[in-house]
Design a protein around this nucleic acid. Structure first.
Lengths: 116, 116
DNA sequence: CCCTGACATTGACAATCATCAATGTATGGG
DNA sequence: CCCATACATTGATGATTGTCAATGTCAGGG
């Protein structure tokens, strides 16, 4: 659906905040908010944490369903949100689906706060 | 209501993720999610941006209502959410209310992503 | 005092979201 | 070919949330 804003040059204004629109353009703000929306759920934060802590750097859904005490469809839904936000990567091997952190995605999300 | 998690030592488990609970505890995750929930709205991101870009580092509500094209009660509501999240500071002088960034709050929020 | 201006609070409503049960799809084994 | 397993998708439901209109509060000016 949506991914991390790829550092677009603020498709909004010309150069140096010409006093017209506010510092952060409406469209730019909407893009950045999508990333934080994906992070704004406790269970999704835990999913990211588990995937990150995994020994091989990746986890399958069956490993994620149990520790969260959530149904499998719900976990699948959260994973989809994180993939759409550009934070997780999905790779299907055989019957299993393996999720891993997109390299640098968390750092880039953190960077969004510095460029407000 | 709620503020930035003050770097608590993860009131959850004993020491080194003893394989029982997942990497990020449920309570810890809920606390961190509160911060990102506050950031998960385009208009609130723009509010932070405007306050940050302000020449004196602070802005009153009347300066924030117009550029966002929102009603005054709505802006007041968003500002309250940001204050409750520990991101903004409110100071009332005379008839006006001045909002400013809590020093280091954005950096601390960004740091939450590094310690997932 | 009353009146105006700046802001907060309340109540209501529509929209979004998190969750689950049920069902769909595809892969691998027999 | 059939069945079990792993995961995704759909539909429904209750809970949050963003927004506004109306009202409340409080300071300053006449």
């Amino acid at each position: 659906m949506n991914s991390l804003p790829i550092l677009e040059p603020a498709t909004d204004e010309a150069c140096c905040t010409p006093a017209g629109p506010p510092a952060l353009g409406a469209e730019e703000a909407k893009q950045k908010a999508l990333v934080f929306k994906a992070l704004a759920d406790p269970n999704r934060l835990r999913l990211l944490s588990i995937v990150k802590a995994g020994p091989s750097g990746e986890s399958c859904v069956c490993d994620l369903t149990e520790p969260l005490d959530l149904g499998q469809p719900t976990v699948s839904h959260h994973l989809k949100v994180l993939v759409d936000a550009g934070l997780l990567h999905r790779e299907k091997r055989g019957t299993w689906a393996y999720y891993s952190l997109v390299p640098g995605a968390l750092e880039q999300a953190a960077g969004l706060l510095a460029t407000l």
